[in-house]
Design a protein around this nucleic acid. Structure first.
Length: 364
DNA sequence: AATCCGGGGGC
DNA sequence: GCCCCAGGATT
């Protein structure tokens, strides 16, 4: 199949089958940029409601640049990879300060923005500005490795560079943005990781994997390491004013800029109450007594898993001082909704708020 | 080149 | 359970 045939079949398929998305065909570089950041390692269906809410809060680069980081993280809460939100916020301020509030339309300028790497630069430049940069994301890797019958490990840089060269050669001159979106759309809806719908694929004729019945084997990926599983003890410290103690994670840490109940990893030989007491002493310089178990939950992060054991605590001695955290605060339980929390901690705040509403069992 | 960074959905 | 997802930053 010639490149021209590849393009026309793909683009015709796209014109008839593309899904509707709030940022698609809007022509607004800010919304296209925002969508590409939200879609990093995130499915369209998961990102869409966040996109709508984010645009409601921050309809323009200027609005985003003027916002407080805490508010931006609150709108982002639940979407994960929170450095994306912090980087996007900082990048919006750079766009206002250095680029007159306009999203840069050149490679050298747009890659100056935090959180904009080769994929996002290519996506924004092609979709918003019709420039000929081919994207390579997980979808493109899957589609082209099958189409060309590439069986090297797609996790390796060399293989990805080879796929980038294929994409660079295939991309349409006239409709580069649509070509990129079409290839990704095909990967997301037809050329799926398992059970691809080859009968509906416009590229079936030229596809090596289809012709050799290797669609289930390609793309080849080396195995990932198993994720370690940690046991975490967490303290929900209450005072006489029915307030709880929360801590702000530093910007450069995992979940940076989000709040949490203080705690940490269980060490060998420790009971969970021991862990909570030790961690709170180390992190906040306080001594607490354990009142009772509050909640146990499992949660999976990208590279490890945790079981979180939370205990209701009472302050025995000392005034809490932030040591490992950026800031600490005593807040009422009904204020917990106002702060950005990561998912595992959000499950704790939800139980606290439900019990508080029912006036149950929170009395010490 | 390898590792770190969330959360959700599909199978 | 594991895998994947419109990846980027850091080491």
């Amino acid at each position: 199949m010639t490149n021209t045939e590849f393009q026309s079949r793909l683009l015709n398929w796209y014109d008839q089958n593309k899904r509707s998305m709030p940022w698609r065909d809007c022509g607004d570089p800010y919304k296209i940029w925002l969508s590409e950041i939200m879609l990093q390692q995130t499915r369209v269906d998961q990102a869409t409601p966040y996109f709508e809410r984010f645009v409601d809060h921050y309809p323009s680069v200027n609005a985003l640049a003027e916002a407080d980081q805490q508010d931006v993280l609150k709108v982002w809460e639940g979407l994960g990879y929170y450095s994306r939100a912090r980087n996007l916020h900082a990048a919006a301020q750079l766009v206002v300060d250095d680029f007159d509030g306009r999203v840069p339309d050149s490679w050298d300028d747009i890659t100056k923005l935090k959180g904009v790497g080769p994929y996002t630069a290519s996506a924004v430049l092609s979709i918003a500005f019709q420039k000929k940069y081919a994207v390579v994301d997980g979808n493109v890797i899957r589609v082209l490795s099958r189409y060309h019958g590439i069986d090297e490990d797609v996790r390796s840089t060399k293989t990805k560079n080879g796929i980038q060269e294929h994409a660079d050669e295939l991309i349409s001159e006239e409709r580069p943005g649509d070509f990129n979106q079409a290839l990704m759309e095909l990967g997301a809806t037809i050329c799926t990781p398992s059970n691809p719908d080859c009968g509906s694929c416009p590229l079936q004729d030229g596809c090596v994997a289809y012709k050799t019945a290797r669609t289930e084997e390609l793309p080849y990926k080396s195995k990932k390491k198993k994720r370690p599983h940690h046991q975490i003890g967490v303290g929900i410290v209450r005072n006489q004013k029915d307030q709880v103690l929360i801590a702000l994670r530093p910007d450069d840490a995992m979940l940076g800029g989000l709040w949490e109940f203080p705690g940490g990893k269980q060490e060998s030989g420790e009971t969970f109450p021991d862990t909570v007491k030790r961690e709170l002493h180390e992190e906040l310089d306080i001594t607490v007594s354990i009142i009772k178990p509050f909640m146990k939950l499992d949660h999976a992060y990208s590279h490890f898993k945790i079981t979180l054991h939370a205990y209701l605590c009472e302050l025995e001695e000392g005034k809490p001082e932030p040591r490992t955290s950026q800031e600490i605060r005593w807040i009422a339980i009904d204020e917990l909704t106002e702060y950005p929390f990561p998912k595992a901690n959000r499950r704790l705040t939800e139980k606290l708020m439900n019990l508080n509403k029912g006036q149950q069992e929170l009395e010490i």
